[in-house]
Amino acid sequence: MNKWIVSSSPHVHSGDSIQKNMLYVVLALLPAYLVALYYFGVGALVVSVIAIASCIGFEAFIQRFVLKTKVSISDGSAALTGLLLAMNLPSNLPWWMVIIGSMVAIGLGKMCYGGLGNNLFNPALVGRVFLLISFPAAMTTWPIPEPFSMAYMDAQTAATPLSFMKFDQMLPPILNTLIGNEGGSMGEVSAIALLLGGIFLLWKKVITWHIPVSILATVALFTGIMHLVDPMAYENPLWHLCSGGLLLGSIFMATDYVTSPMTPRGQIVYGVGIGLITVVIRLWGSYPEGVSFAILLMNAATPLIDRYMKPKRFVSK
């Protein structure tokens, strides 16, 4: 007799999977990655390959020998963490620093909480902030963008538009930030490429508009008010939106499933929080850029937001 399978409903599945979501995010990062390859050349390639390879390697190692669980690198999350970490690094960062960053991202950012799904902070940002604090000089020395550059570590250095802003210098034309012809981390330079990726993610329903839009709107509003108050001291909001890691952060880092709130209302609270902290750090903090810190701080607040921001009920009492 045939053995039927019994289980309770539903008996069909959407076919959505972790791999699929990770793949879509990687695809969405592709335009920005290509821009990085164009402007930073070999350096970008070396840093990203090292970051991805070492993230996968560390995850497999920890799962196999430390946690002694099933190795799940095939779900693609480690590769994505590596890619995101690379996108947040300058392309002339020494290779061993990249490896240390990957180790911290995977080990401290993810595995010590129990692996994918349990981590409190965005692993790639944990790695990035660890490097930023440990090696501040290396992490804030950016290579000059130069098409198809063959140089890796000995490139000349440039400053980011945000540090121009911070330290009262002349700003380069805004077109440069849109296409990516500026100093900065690999992934953050081209606003257009990042927006393309964001549109792709929205189209594929990997993310919803709540987090990116609330972050960007908050930043625009806050810097807009400051600009109106004193146009000499504070740059106009467009500059703030297009420069630095804001787009990369709001589209790819803040929307990380594991570390962001689950409900649309919670996501808006979270986004507004990130926007406010980012602007405060940018305008009055000692670092020129604050997106990473803002996201990490709001990551910590996510469980609390989830607790108080319940979903919109069918019937609200």
Binding site: M1, K3, W4, I5, V6, S7, S8
Partner: peptide, 8 residues
Amino acid sequence: PKLTTYTG
């Protein structure tokens, strides 16, 4: 003997 397989 098992007649069905429960997968829930």
